[in-house]
């Protein structure tokens, strides 16, 4: 199966471990993620004020490009891209007046009225591939690894774009069980990490991260599994500082779901770029014999 793939900015820079592991793992599962030949920034956040149509242009332009390329479905990895593109698509489907204004403004492009279905990779894994098929492809079961699934905000909110239950999503659990890990009940799975406040108020984000990381540690997690590069950064980047401030915190590996999937289905660990992860993922996986010892 070939699927049009929208990467977004961070996948091409700071989250190569996310992108490379995803493409390799999906290939093993028989899904080719084919990067769109032309794409631009999704806008990162969906504009929520009623009259702010200008900021919908960026995501809609991407949707137009996808349609022009003959695709009726696009998959994203980044949770923010998913949210922004999906909500822009819904706006264009459901608000005729705004749709007209936006289409008129972009009059050198084809009109967009919902020709493209925006999906997140987790949906593809659940709905197109299926957990049983994933489990059948597992070469190295990740048995013994205890993970806390973490969704953050943008995969399940708002309700109308949620890829799963808003309050108790299970899609990460399904995937992580299929690759053999023990999935912990993680009550803070959909709590916000502090998001873009990292730019203006990093201290507040440190508090958020400590709350979430501390809970994962108390629950006995070996790692937190994420699907958003911003969550990965906020939960991972300042762990040394958090450990300095709170002595009960000792560190928590942060890993993308695609990396564990790739590892389980036999992708070369070097492709997964665990060296880019925060929180000691490499050490954890070495310790469990899941990646080779450093020579």
């Amino acid at each position: 199966m070939d699927l049009s793939y929208y990467p977004g900015c961070t996948l091409k820079t700071r989250a190569l471990n996310f992108e490379d592991s995803a493409i390799a793992a999906m290939a093993v599962l028989g899904v080719n993620l084919i990067e769109l030949p032309r794409w631009n920034c999704c806008g990162t956040v969906y504009s929520m004020t009623d009259d702010d149509l200008a900021h919908h242009i960026a995501p809609v332009r991407n949707l137009v490009r996808i349609a022009e390329q003959g695709s009726d479905r696009v998959v994203t990895l980044c949770s923010f891209c998913y949210n922004t593109l999906k909500r822009a698509d819904l706006l264009m489907r459901n608000s005729p007046e705004k749709r007209n204004t936006i289409n008129t403004f972009m009059d050198d492009e084809i009109d967009y009225d919902g020709q493209v279905e925006v999906v997140h990779l987790l949906e593809v894994l659940r709905d197109d591939v299926g957990w049983e098929a994933v489990a059948r492809k597992v070469k190295t079961s990740l048995e013994g690894l205890k993970v806390a699934p973490y969704y953050g905000c943008t995969l399940t909110r708002p309700q109308e774009i949620a890829i799963d239950s808003v309050e108790s999503p299970t899609v990460l659990q399904g995937l992580m069980q299929a690759v053999g890990t023990t999935v912990l009940d993680f009550p803070l799975a959909t709590e916000c990490c502090g998001s873009f406040e990292i730019v203006s108020d990093p201290d507040a984000v440190i508090e958020r991260a400590y709350t979430i990381l501390g809970m994962a540690q108390r629950k006995g997690a070996d790692a937190i599994v994420v699907s958003c590069p911003l969550c990965a950064h906020n939960l991972g980047h300042k762990q040394a500082e958090i450990a300095g401030k709170y002595s009960d915190f000792t560190g928590m590996p942060i890993v993308y779901f695609t990396q564990l999937l790739a590892l389980a289905v036999g992708v070369n660990p070097e492709v997964c770029r665990f060296d880019l992860n925060f929180g000691g993922v490499e050490a954890l996986l070495r310790d469990r014999g899941l990646i080779p010892q450093r020579v």
Binding site: G8, C9, T10, T13, R14, A15, C41, G43, T44, V45, H55, C78, F80, S195, F196, E197, I198, V199, S200, P229, L230, H233, N234, H237
Partner: peptide, 15 residues
């Protein structure tokens, strides 16, 4: 330098 693009774009868009 240390912030991922997603954080910067997001923050600038909002703030």
């Amino acid at each position: 330098a240390e912030l991922p693009p997603i954080a910067l774009v997001c923050g600038f868009r909002k703030l």
